[in-house]
């Protein structure tokens, strides 16, 4: 298995990593049994993701996709952020090995989970905007 240079760059030098104390949305997906957990923090102002950060337990691809996903939604509106697909994250990383595709799915889900949490904290039902955040199918052990 070989990672692209971009994956290795985002793995070795992750962007937007760490806990965010003043986040107003936080989502966590994955589970330790599968070997990856992604936690995404967002700070939303006027429907814009002003700041984003992540914490990830997982393989190189999990860390790299988290990092890339945060870069791709930073400064975006919530609507635009919700449009981010795992495919787009993978493409931005110049691809992932087939067994690592689920990591990019996790990144997409983490963003959706964080935005859902933001809506809930605002007293708004997130379902019409976000839909259901599905469980990672790879984790159904």
């Amino acid at each position: 298995m070989a990672y692209s240079e971009k994956v290795m760059d985002h793995f070795a030098n992750p962007r937007n990593v760490g806990e965010m104390k003043d986040a107003n949305g936080m989502g966590e997906v994955g589970n330790p049994k599968c070997g990856d957990i992604m936690r995404m923090y967002i700070k939303v102002e006027n429907n814009i993701i002003k700041d984003v950060s992540f914490m990830t337990f997982g393989c190189g691809a999990a860390i790299a996709t988290s990092s890339m996903a945060t870069e791709m939604i930073k400064g975006k509106s919530l609507d635009d952020a919700l449009k981010l697909t795992n495919k787009a994250v993978m493409e931005a990383l110049d691809g992932l090995p087939p067994v690592k595709v689920h990591c990019s799915v996790l990144a997409e889900q983490a963003i959706k989970a964080a935005i859902s949490d933001y809506y809930r904290r605002q007293g708004i039902d997130p379902t019409p905007f976000v839909g259901e955040v599905p469980e990672c199918e790879a984790c159904e052990l």
Partner: peptide, 26 residues
């Protein structure tokens, strides 16, 4: 910590090792 990321960081420091993590087994 997860084994594969551990191996990758060790490799960046010149150390070759292995792990029984799922992520390294495919």
């Amino acid at each position: 910590v997860e084994g594969e990321s551990l191996l990758l960081l060790l490799d960046l420091k010149g150390i070759s090792a292995s792990s029984g993590s799922a992520c390294t087994s495919g």
